[in-house]
């Protein structure tokens, strides 16, 4: 990595509720724990839109997101998908992300499930993200 470049080489595909954890943290404090872990360990975000989005618009947004994931993954960056799966909209998002990854034969996308959403699970997710962050990534090293 260039001395002038501080990138981590770590990216997380994150659900909207994590991007906006500050707005849901009172009801679900575990989201703040996971969001703060992402910040503390230098993950960049690729935000997945909220599940309220119409299916056609969601399909385009996810296609754009997975375009980026594919490029990072094939250039030595580490990408982790923080997968929500509680609401019906979340399940549709998960199906579309999986379909886009399959279409591109994308391998190497690590998955951390938020469900079942509980205090214990959020701690486990934070631990998993710390472990992911401890791995050296070629992507950051290849920046010249």
């Amino acid at each position: 990595m260039s001395a002038r470049d501080a990138r981590s080489g770590r990216i997380a595909l994150v659900p909207d509720r994590l991007v906006n954890a500050h707005l849901v943290a009172e009801a679900e404090p575990g989201f703040a724990l996971v969001a703060d872990t992402l910040l503390a360990y230098g993950f960049g975000w690729i935000a997945v839109p909220p599940p309220e989005l119409a299916p056609a618009a969601m399909a385009i947004a996810i296609e754009l997101a997975i375009d980026q994931v594919y490029d990072y993954a094939t250039n030595g960056y580490g990408v982790v998908w923080i997968r929500p799966s509680t609401a019906p909209g979340d399940r549709l998002i998960a199906q579309q992300v999986e379909a886009e990854c399959t279409r591109r034969a994308l391998r190497g996308l690590e998955i951390v499930d938020l469900a079942p959403e509980s205090a214990e699970r959020f701690v486990e997710v934070a631990v998993a993200l710390r472990a992911f962050a401890s791995v050296e990534r070629e992507g950051a090293e290849n920046v010249v």
Partner: peptide
């Protein structure tokens, strides 16, 4: 501003999010 990995080479001032 939420993902400095997207910058061109030598322009990332933070590891990930510009917190």
């Amino acid at each position: 501003l939420a993902n400095q990995n997207a910058k061109v080479a030598e322009y990332a001032l933070f590891p990930g999010v510009v917190s």
